[in-house]
């Protein structure tokens, strides 16, 4: 137990430097990871085509984790976001057979609706968001499996043949600008953070808690719709498991990026960006470096611990969840 006690003392001293460290540490983790893979892959990681890969593989996570900041800032989690992505993609795929132009709004609407239901269960039925979203995840997964008939469903050929990289880029840019501005330039971000610190206190200062909770879940819902639609264009098929890993990846990305799982003042968009970059670079770099086979996951776990220890803010033990 000596080690633990020592660490706590060290932690107190470190807390003096925490303010700056919390911003720089995650970036340092990312940089070190990039340098490591750049060397082990003999430079392949830094090639243009490799960066294109990272962009192609990382954008869904970037989309979902940016929106996840809204929910996590209030101290809640959205366990249904991954299943929602897959569900929206499937809906968009079905709609695309009637009209390819309607596929995108359909995905957004579906996602927003799912988010709304989540928030209503939480705000009005008072069911803990953890349970509400978990149940939503089960429902969406089952619905998605039923809709896709258990197999994968190809998008209409016209969607498959067109190159949507420009559309994707534009949509992504618009989305990022909107979501960052709302969080950092309006009072919404600060109010969400306040809810994460104390709901009671925020309500006393005039924050409309119910509305903000609803907004936060609708934002993740819309993000799931956007990610679902863009992923559908990318892989060319809807499938029962599409995007299912995004839930856990988003949470991991935000915490890696330096955000507290309890929300509050540590919330920031930068967490989502650094975190999703770390996750994507790790997944991609390990293959480029030629680390395959049985030991692949082992190496990934070890690297993950190293990056975490560099990039996660060392909180004092009382905040250590």
């Amino acid at each position: 137990m000596m080690v633990v006690n020592m660490d706590i003392k060290k932690g107190r001293i470190q807390s003096l430097f925490q303010y700056n460290k919390s911003k720089i540490a995650p970036l340092l983790g990312l940089v070190l990871l990039v340098v490591f893979f750049a060397i082990t892959s003999k430079g392949k990681l830094l090639e243009a085509s490799s960066i294109e890969n990272i962009y192609n593989q990382g954008f869904p996570l970037l989309i979902t984790s940016l929106a996840f900041v809204y929910v996590m800032a209030t101290g809640n989690l959205d366990f249904s976001i991954g299943a929602n992505v897959g569900f929206c993609a499937t809906i968009a795929c079905y709609v695309a057979f009637f009209n390819t132009k309607l596929a995108f709004p359909a995905a957004l609407l579906t996602g927003a609706l799912v988010g709304l239901i989540n928030s209503l269960m939480y705000v009005f039925l008072k069911i803990p968001s953890f349970i509400a979203c978990l149940c939503m995840m089960f429902i969406l997964t089952a619905a998605n499996q039923t809709l896709t008939g258990g197999g994968s469903k190809m998008v209409p050929v016209e969607l498959l043949q067109n190159d949507y990289s420009i559309v994707r880029l534009v949509l992504l840019l618009i989305y990022i600008i909107i979501i960052v501005i709302i969080f950092h330039k309006t009072k919404v971000g600060k109010q969400l953070e306040a809810l994460g610190i104390s709901v009671e206190a925020s309500i006393q200062t005039g924050v409309n808690a119910k509305l903000l909770f609803i907004v936060s879940y609708v934002v993740t819902g819309v993000a799931a719709g956007l990610a679902g639609y863009l992923m559908l264009l990318r892989v060319g098929a809807a499938s029962p498991t599409l995007g299912s890993s995004l839930t856990i990846d988003s949470i991991i990305a935000l915490v890696l990026g330096g955000m507290s799982i309890l929300g509050g003042a540590s919330s920031s968009m930068i967490c989502a960006v650094t975190g999703s970059l770390i996750t994507t670079v790790l997944n991609s770099g390990i293959v480029l470096a030629g680390m395959g086979g049985d030991a692949q996951q082992l190496i990934k776990g070890a690297l993950f611990i190293i990056v975490v220890s560099i990039s996660t803010l060392r909180e004092s033990s009382s905040k250590n969840f």
Binding site: S239, T241, L242, S244, S245, G292, G293
Partner: peptide
């Protein structure tokens, strides 16, 4: 040998 994570299409 790359072990893709799980059975997902993405």
């Amino acid at each position: 040998v790359d072990v893709a994570q799980g059975f997902t299409i993405d």
